[in-house]
Design a protein around this nucleic acid. Structure first.
Length: 375
DNA sequence: CAGGCGTGGAC
DNA sequence: TGTCCAAGCCT
């Protein structure tokens, strides 16, 4: 075990990522073994990093820390402001859970394990996992990063590295318990922060999903997949389920004053809590104009005249693909009702930037602005 | 426990 | 171009 740890850590000292801002002291210096780091920024970062690459997270993390510099600021923030800062990052339940977790921590409503004396941060796996949106891997990552405590991690990078190390014959999802044991066995109890970060950096930069750079890998002499001659074959993947495709009719409804109608989605589920232009699924054999009229009648209780097309765009979610066919509409009658949303609102086009929208709607807004600018 | 849950980078 | 998939969690 010691040789593997030493070789990985030696590689990491030379080639690891050492400029990650939340893993440094405020003055930019690296923490020594056992030295604590500020837990708040690490907690925020680890949640942002769930299923999201480091380069994507960095600008979001900096904006978030400027807006909500500490736990109290986040707990006191509105959900609207929280979603504004998360807009475009995806998996929006993470933002709502981070917000709820901040309020739990401020209220002291978490299990034992914190240091006490005004320090709200848990020191145990159970303490962190009691917070919404924190599972075992994120909890282990936070505890090792912030406090240099010996807790293992098992994200996608680590699963891939370990699956190759032992040439595991099946999908890791089916044998997670064994992978957790392996991650715990390998973990360097003297330097858990550095070891976990090294393992992730190895997966992100060397032991990559495609064309791994085995020539520079510190574990190449120990790697069963390399010995088998085909490291790219691991980890073995499950066949992904088919992704459904749907056409969505969307109305950008204007009133006589030039305001447009938007609604806030329900608090849970897909894009929960974000704002959007109203619309819905096209039914078989239905013209898209009829879809838009029907959906606005069913979900908002309004009657509109469907005008020209503004834009058609395709958007892929993790579990479905949609084509949005967006038409400009004129409001005719009916006070808009939030029959399938939290609330509806008439807003001037220049006010749209103060609402959190999902990525597909941001493209619709860009098209609308271009149309308005063109007259 | 299999499926819901976003977005953009990389090739 | 399409396809894969990333520092997972929740139900």
């Amino acid at each position: 075990m010691e040789p593997l740890r030493g070789e990985l850590l030696a590689w990491w000292e030379r080639d690891g990522r050492h400029q990650i801002p939340w893993k440094l002291h405020p003055d930019g210096s690296r923490p020594g073994p056992g030295e604590p780091l500020a837990a708040y920024g690490i907690w925020v970062a680890e949640v942002m990093l769930q299923q999201t690459q480091l380069a994507v997270v960095l600008p979001y993390w900096h904006r978030w820390m400027a807006a909500f510099p500490d736990l109290g600021a986040l707990a006191a923030a509105s959900e609207h402001d929280v979603l504004m800062l998360w807009q475009g990052l995806g998996y929006y339940a993470r933002a709502r859970r981070l917000h709820a977790g901040a309020r739990q921590l401020v209220a002291g409503a978490y299990p034992s394990g914190a240091a006490g004396h005004g320090d709200p941060w848990p020191r145990t796996l159970e303490g962190w996992m009691a917070l919404p949106g924190i599972g075992r891997s994120t909890a282990g990552s936070i505890l090792s990063s912030a406090f240099d405590r010996p807790f293992a991690i098992l994200d996608g990078n680590v699963q891939r590295v370990l699956a190759r190390l032992v040439a595991h014959p099946g999908p890791p999802k089916r044998e997670l318990a064994g992978f957790w044991r392996l991650s715990e066995t390998l973990l360097d109890p003297q330097r858990p922060r550095a070891f976990n970060q090294a393992l992730m950096d190895l997966g992100a930069g060397v032991c990559t999903p495609r064309q791994p750079a085995c020539g520079t890998c510190p574990w190449q002499p120990h790697c069963a997949a390399y010995a088998a001659g085909d490291p790219g074959r691991f980890p073995v993947k499950d066949t992904p389920p088919p992704v459904p495709f749907q056409v969505i009719g969307v109305g950008v409804v204007s009133d006589a004053a030039g305001r447009v109608l938007i609604d806030q989605r329900l608090p849970e589920g897909l894009l929960g809590g974000l704002w959007e232009f109203p619309g819905g699924k096209q039914e078989p054999g239905e013209a898209i104009e009829a879809t838009i009229q029907r959906e606005l009648r069913e979900e908002l209780a309004i009657e509109v005249t469907v005008g020209e097309e503004l834009i058609t765009l395709e958007h892929a979610y993790s579990h479905k693909r949609l084509r949005f066919v967006v038409h400009l509409c004129r409001w005719r009658s009916g006070e808009p009702q939030p029959l399938a949303s939290q609330q509806v609102r008439w807003v001037a086009p220049q006010e749209l930037s103060s609402y959190p929208f999902p990525a597909a709607n941001a493209r619709i807004i860009a098209a609308l602005e271009a149309r308005l600018a063109a007259g």
